[in-house]
Design a protein around this nucleic acid. Structure first.
Lengths: 249, 249
DNA sequence: TCCAAATGTCTATTAATCTAGACAACCGAA
DNA sequence: TTCGGTTGTCTAGATTAATAGACATTTGGA
């Protein structure tokens, strides 16, 4: 159960039981409580759990079905059709944790790997470096409420940000790492968004089923002087995130 | 008619009409809509305005009277007893007592319980601890001028803050307790805000009527090194507090 | 093929909510 | 004192919400 233990529904509160139950089931679904099976527990189980009649649970379920969140299948059970996707705002000041902000309790960035290597052609061009220049490549996985949301590959000019891997490992934040390395603020110059089928390690890291769709956001960040400091390619699990592009003057 | 225009109440929404009306009247009161007279409009007027029977309005009024917000006087009308909503700022440096500052004379934090136990999954994740790690759970109620404002459940890593319960009991302040335990300053890493209907013990501790709305702020605080030191879930009585989120770089 | 498990549908009953109307009780002012 | 306006109380009925039980229907697997 939740943080504060087993919560019973409240009677005579002016809020119908089926509505309370529907609200709590929607929360549980979005929280990923039923991700293992992708199915709701049987109606009889839910009725017992909430201490109400099965018909009351069915009313709640009908409300969720109306919203398109679940779909009942006779003889099988009730399938979870849709989880609300996190809204990830992309703007001039895109920051991972800030962007998801209050859409999840626990936003975590985990580093998989960091290495210094020769910048690939596209990266060198994006960062305005001669071909053959060294860069730091950093691989991260970002999660919201324990659920992996995105997988990113970042490139930084090695000259300025040689230690960024170690600092990220400690601060778990690109923004914080930049700050420690003398970049108090930075802005996004460009973002390109595309969609492909998931493949390779992304399937494993994002816990996707083969053939799932991922959104790819390729971005360039610059410091306030306009010098490129980061090239990143972030793969979002498309069934968990929607990207909202925000324009600004 | 309030700021937000003429909204009709919704039928068959799973929320009783009297509850919807009570909520909207509470908002209007706290918004100062009736400050000129200090009285509610007559029940017949309200009934016409909301498009419901007078008895339905009376049910809503009874709920507000139960909360101590209004007091009906036969022959005269219904007087507004109390209308105040504290502003609670949420920022990188959120502190309970400081935040309420000069909005109340007497700001009190009372501890209900403190226990060392295995951290729930969400908490362990939030605090960056392996699952199964011990944490201190502390339950508090915060009041301003003797009126309960919020009810919070805090989690601290047991390793660093085993004694925080005893220290809070003495100092009545999380900030002070942290200071004694070697954390001179701390910042808020994240805050998630949602709203639900009050239920369970919160109704009793916050002296709410069943079905009242509470604001839930789930927060993680870190020390200046960025290590998570506190996970908390604070439930604010929504009719007594408004949260103002302050952005910073 | 048969069974267990799940959702779908139906009837019946009780409780809560909302409407409707009438009238009593109370207060302030004309 | 009378009267208009207000809240308080009562009865009655309609609608919605919730409980209870029975049985049909569908599916997947033994």
């Amino acid at each position: 159960m939740g943080i504060s233990g087993a919560k019973m529904v409240e009677r005579q509160s002016g809020v119908a039981l089926w509505r309370q139950i529907a609200d709590r089931m929607r929360l549980a679904i979005n929280n990923g409580d039923y991700d293992e099976t992708g199915m709701m527990p049987p109606e009889t189980v839910l009725a017992a759990r909430f201490g109400v009649n099965r018909h009351t649970v069915r009313s709640a379920m009908a409300a969720l079905a109306e919203e398109g969140i679940v779909r009942p299948i006779q003889g099988i059970g009730t399938r979870i059709e849709r989880r609300d996707r996190l809204r990830f705002p992309i703007s001039r000041r895109t920051r991972f944790a800030q962007g998801l902000g209050n859409q999840a309790r626990d936003i975590e960035g985990r580093m998989l790997e960091a290495a210094t290597e020769v910048a690939p052609g596209i990266v060198a061009e994006a960062l305005g470096m001669p071909t053959g220049t060294l860069c730091v490549r950093m691989e991260t996985v970002n999660s919201a409420d324990k659920r992996p949301i995105s997988r990113a590959t970042h490139y930084f000019p090695a000259e300025r940000f040689a230690e960024i891997g170690a600092i990220f490992e400690r601060t778990r934040s690109v923004t914080a790492a930049f700050r420690e390395l003398g970049v108090p603020d930075y802005v996004r110059r460009s973002t390109e968004i595309s969609a492909i089928h998931a493949e390779g390690d992304d399937i494993r890291h994002l816990k996707l089923s083969p053939g799932a769709i991922i959104l790819v956001a390729t971005a360039i960040n610059t410091d306030l002087e306009g010098r490129p400091i980061q090239f990143s390619r972030t793969r979002f699990a498309a069934d968990r995130v929607k990207l909202t592009v925000e324009m600004d003057a």
